[in-house]
């Protein structure tokens, strides 16, 4: 996901192993670190993770805390050097060699592998060290996995909701753990939210757009603005009127049924964060359904998935969704029903 970051972390580990890093080499490390900070905080959206990231990257924290960044062999940093030496028979190699900036060896993959890589985001042609993956591959894997976890536990920022000019409602879910273990609760609105929707939303809208973080807050953070603006424009070009858009915290897909029932919407477009994977933690889906009501079957729902920078470009997806909505309104059906009517 982020090669520079991976190599930076590795460098920190290597320096700690050598443990005779001068202040200067710490300083050197800090330079690329600072540049990376923005990206880092993007990956680790939660407060807890942001702190964690700070601990890793900020040289000042490292020096102030006076604790080893990574405890090797579970020993204190003071006797770490000793234990390291005792394990080694050749002292001189470890004492006199100055620490140079760590760099991964250049990937030397054949042209065919490079050509194959253009066709897949999968981790192919990464080589191996003995029977295991190389450090770089492993760290990248861990980083991508961490980003996926962060996406699930992250939150959509208040700032984005203000920018989109949408208000927020909640489901019957109280916290993330419950959201994950009780999908049924994510499919029902809380009582206060129901009342709020009744008072704030336009009734019987042609198209009701709703947004939820679902399983990836980063998906919404990254993509929803472009998709939403493009979809709005597309619908307005097609002269299709839109209801009152709002944001649902911790919603599940089938929640659209209850909302459809409540607002008597003709079509609902539901923009929701997808379960993150190792290729992208920022993938968003748009679920679309004609007259979703309590009891609607899954076969009536349609989805455009894989909306993110590396998949379907958010803007193009938004523009395309408008034509899908137009078709659904024309045939008065969605999903399998639409395919049948289209012939």
């Amino acid at each position: 996901m982020n090669e520079q970051l991976v190599s930076m972390i590795t460098q920190l580990v290597m320096e700690k192993m050598g443990n005779n890093a001068s202040d200067k080499s710490y300083h050197d490390t800090a330079v690329p670190t600072e540049n990376q900070k923005e990206t880092l905080i993007k990956f680790h959206n939660t407060v807890a993770n942001a702190n964690y990231a700070d601990e890793v990257v900020s040289p000042s924290t490292i020096e102030q805390s006076n604790e080893p960044l990574i405890k090797l062999y579970h020993s204190e940093s003071s006797n770490h050097e000793q234990s390291y030496y005792s394990a080694s028979n050749d002292e001189s190699t470890y004492t006199s060699v100055p620490i140079t900036e760590f760099k991964f060896e250049e990937d030397e993959v054949s042209e065919s592998v490079q050509a194959a890589k253009k066709h897949t985001p999968a981790r192919i042609g990464v080589g191996r060290a003995g029977t295991r993956p190389k450090t770089k591959t492993w760290l990248k894997f861990r980083l991508d996995h961490a980003a996926a976890v962060d996406a699930v536990y992250g939150e959509v920022t208040e700032e984005l909701l203000q920018k989109l000019n949408v208000f927020q409602v909640t489901t019957k879910v109280t916290d993330k753990e419950e959201y994950i273990t009780r999908p049924d609760l994510g499919r029902r609105l809380s009582d206060e939210s129901k009342a709020l929707l009744q008072s704030k939303c336009q009734k019987n809208p042609k198209v009701q757009i709703i947004i939820s973080n679902g399983l990836s807050a980063s998906a919404i953070e990254e993509n929803v603005q472009d998709v939403y603006l493009a979809l709005q424009q597309s619908l307005s070009n097609l002269k299709i009127e839109i209801g009152t858009t709002f944001y649902i915290d911790k919603g599940r897909v089938a929640l659209m049924d209850e909302i459809g029932e409540l607002l008597q919407a003709e079509v609902i477009v539901y923009l929701i964060g997808e379960r993150p994977g190792l290729v992208s933690a920022e993938s968003m889906s748009a679920y679309i359904c004609y007259q979703p009501r309590i009891g609607t079957v899954e076969a009536d729902r349609m989805v455009v998935s894989n909306i993110h920078k590396g998949g379907i470009p958010p803007l193009e997806a938004g523009a395309y969704l408008g034509t899908v909505v137009q078709k659904i309104l024309h045939y008065k059906a969605s999903g399998v029903g639409l395919v049948a009517k289209e012939g």
Partner: peptide, 8 residues
């Protein structure tokens, strides 16, 4: 892949 959005 930007034709639809730019055209629109």
């Amino acid at each position: 892949d930007y034709a639809k959005i730019i055209g629109q």
